[in-house]
Design a protein around this nucleic acid. Structure first.
Length: 479
RNA sequence: GGUUCCGUCGUCUAGUGGUCUAGGACGUCUGGUUCUCAUCCAGAAAAUCGCGGGUUCGACUCCCGCCGGAAUCACCA
C-alpha cells in the first residue's frame, strides 16, 4: 500500500530535536511504500505566527534530506499547503455539518463559558461543553464560533504504536470547529486537510492521543474512512521526566548543523531514538532506514535525548565518510569550520591536515581549535615543555641538546615524507638513548604547542620541512 | 480530579512462556596500540526485568491489584 503521509508543523519557530521525529517517521513510511510525503503549514493561529518560521522549517527538512512531494515551494495537486489559504475549504466542509445538524453556531459569550467552567470546577465534575449547549442556536454569522455537536458514546480504535484503544463517552465534547476569527481550529482543519489530501497515515505526537475520539467522531460525521493513526512517544529532556521542549533549552536542529554535526548522524540518531528494528545495527544510512523502518517497532514509552550518543554517532559518521568516500568527500563537508588562518592555504594542504586529524573530530567545528598550528606558527610557550610530565625532569641544557640533535637529524632527511620521518625519528631515539615519551613529547610540543596532535611523523610531514625546522629552531632559541 | 498511555543496566534498547546465570550500543572504568589527544582492539563494573498477587511444570514475557511517571481536559497546535 502506498502511504501518503504528512508533516504538518506550525510556523511558530524553529524545529528542535523534540519534534523532528514527526517529520522523519512519516518520511520514512512514505518512501518505503513508494508513496507521498506532504508538507503542510498549519498557520491558523495568527497570534503565534512567527515571520520566517516556514523557511526555517523548510531549511531543516532539506538539510536532513527529507524532501517532500507536495507542499510549499514545489506545490502539488492538493494545494494550497498553507492552512490560512484554505479558509473557503473549511467553511464548505463545516457547512455540511451545519446542514446535517452536526454542528451549530455558538452565540455564548466567552465570560459565560468561563462561568460554566468555574461551576464545574467547584462541583469537581468534568467540564463538558455539551452539557451547556445553547438550545436554539442562531444562524451562523461571522464573529461567531462553530462547534461540533457531539454524540457521546464509546470508541475503540487501533493505534499503530499504542495498540488497541478504548474510551468512554466522557471524553467526547462539542469541540470548536471554526473560531470566532473565522479560522479553523487544528482539531477541525487537520481532519479536512488530511481527507482532501488523501493522507493515509496520520503520524503525530502522543499528546493527540486523548483527543482522538473527538477526531473519530468527526470522521464519522463526515463519513470518512479512518486513516492509520500513529502516536509517536515524546522525546524526553536530559533531566526530569518532561518532554523535551524549547523551555528545556532544546536546540534547533540547524544549530547542530552549524556546530558541525552531519545530517546523516542527526537523522540516524533521531530515527533510532525510540525505534529499533530488532537487530544490533546502530549505524543506518537514510536508505537503510527507509528499507528497515517499521511503525510497529516504534517504542511505546518516551525516550530520553542523549547528546553524548549523538556526538558519538557523529564521530562514527565522520570516519565512515572519510573511509568510504574519501578525504575529498569529507573535506567538502568541512567548509566554514576551519580556523580563519586556513584561508591562506590551498585545499590540497587542508585536505592533508584533515586526513591526519579527522579521527579525532566529534563535530566538524572541532577543526577550528584543533588545527590552528597547521596554519600559523604557534606562540612558543616554554612552560609547556618545562611542565610536561615527561620533560620536567630534564635540564634546560639537555632539552636544548635534544632539540639541536633533532634539527640536525631531520635536516638530513632527503625526501620529506611520513615513512622517512619515522625512520629518522627511530634512529634519533637510538642515538640519543631517550625514551619515546621524552623525545617525541619534546618534538611534538616544539612544533605545535598544542595539548594534543596527530602522530608525530604525520604532523611533521604535513607541516613540511621548512616549517618544521623553523619551529624547532625557534623552540631551541627560547630555551 | 476525570480520561488515556507508559514502567528491562545511569541512558537508548533486544527480548512476544523454557535457548535469559537477560543480549547489544552510548557513557564509566582497566589494559594494549613506540609521546599527547583521539580512533581502534581487548576486558570489567552496571538491570532482584517498578512492587505484590495469581495462571502455569515453568513468566521479563499472560491476568489482576498497587505504586511511580507522563499526556490531555483551550476560540494552541
Amino acid at each position: 500500500m502506498k502511504a501518503i503521509t504528512r508533516f504538518a508543523p506550525s510556523p511558530t519557530g524553529y524545529i528542535h530535536i523534540g519534534n523532528v521525529r514527526s517529520a522523519i517517521y512519516p518520511y520514512l513510511v512514505a518512501r518505503q511504500t513508494d508513496g507521498k510525503m506532504i508538507l503542510r503549514i498549519e498557520d491558523t493561529d495568527r497570534e503565534r505566527y512567527v515571520e520566517g518560521a516556514t523557511e526555517l522549517i523548510e531549511d531543516t527538512l532539506k538539510w536532513l534530506g527529507l524532501d517532500w512531494d507536495e507542499g510549499p515551494i514545489i506545490g502539488g495537486d492538493n494545494g494550497p499547503y498553507f492552512q490560512s489559504e484554505r479558509l473557503e475549504i473549511y467553511h464548505a466542509w463545516v457547512k455540511k455539518l451545519l446542514d446535517s445538524g452536526r454542528a451549530y453556531a455558538d452565540p455564548t459569550p466567552a465570560e459565560k463559558i468561563d462561568e460554566y467552567r468555574r461551576e464545574c470546577t467547584e462541583k469537581k465534575i468534568p467540564f463538558l461543553y455539551r452539557n451547556f449547549r445553547p438550545e436554539n442556536p442562531p444562524e451562523w454569522e461571522p464573529g461567531m464560533p462553530i462547534r461540533f455537536k457531539s454524540e457521546p458514546k464509546e470508541y475503540s480504535w487501533t493505534d499503530a504504536v499504542m495498540g488497541e484503544m478504548h474510551t468512554g463517552p466522557e471524553v467526547l465534547d462539542d469541540i470548536i470547529l471554526i473560531k470566532r476569527d473565522g479560522y479553523p481550529t487544528y482539531n477541525f482543519a487537520h481532519i479536512v486537510d488530511d481527507a482532501e489530501m488523501g493522507v493515509t497515515h496520520v503520524m503525530r505526537g502522543v499528546e493527540y492521543l486523548s483527543s482522538t475520539p473527538n477526531y473519530l467522531a468527526l470522521y464519522e460525521a463526515f463519513g470518512l474512512e479512518r486513516p492509520v493513526l500513529v502516536s509517536l512517544p515524546h522525546i524526553l529532556a536530559p533531566t526530569g521526566n518532561k518532554k523535551l521542549g524549547k523551555r528545556d533549552g532544546a536546540k534547533s536542529v540547524t544549530e547542530y548543523r552549524d556546530d558541525g554535526v552531519l545530517a546523516e548522524a542527526m537523522l540516524n540518531y533521531l530515527a533510532c531514538l525510540g525505534w529499533n528494528d530488532g537487530t544490533e545495527q546502530e549505524i543506518y544510512t537514510k536508505e537503510e532506514l527507509v528499507k528497515h523502518f517499521s511503525i510497529d517497532k516504534i517504542q511505546t514509552s518516551g525516550a530520553r535525548y542523549d547528546e553524548t550518543k549523538l556526538l558519538w554517532m557523529n564521530g562514527q559518521w565522520i570516519r565512515r565518510i572519510f573511509d568510504e568516500q574519501g578525504a575529498r568527500a569529507l573535506y567538502d563537508r568541512t567548509v566554514g569550520f576551519w580556523p580563519e588562518s586556513a584561508e591562506n592555504y590551498d585545499e590540497e594542504y587542508r585536505i592533508k591536515v584533515l586526513s591526519i586529524i579527522y579521527d579525532r573530530l566529534k563535530v566538524l567545528s572541532d577543526l577550528r581549535e584543533m588545527t590552528t598550528y597547521f596554519f600559523e606558527d604557534p606562540e612558543v610557550n616554554v612552560s609547556m615543555i618545562a611542565e610536561n610530565k615527561f620533560l620536567k625532569k630534564l635540564s634546560e641544557a639537555e632539552i636544548e641538546d635534544l632539540l639541536k640533535k633533532t634539527i640536525t637529524k631531520l635536516s638530513g632527511v632527503t625526501e620529506w615524507n611520513a615513512d622517512n620521518l619515522q625512520i629518522a625519528l627511530n634512529e634519533l631515539l637510538e642515538e640519543t638513548e631517550r625514551k619515546p615519551a621524552e623525545l617525541f613529547s619534546l618534538i611534538r610540543l616544539s612544533i605545535s604547542f598544542a595539548p594534543f596532535s596527530p602522530a608525530l611523523n604525520l604532523t611533521l610531514d604535513v607541516l613540511g620541512r621548512e616549517v618544521s625546522l623553523a619551529r624547532l629552531n625557534a623552540a631551541a632559541r627560547s630555551i
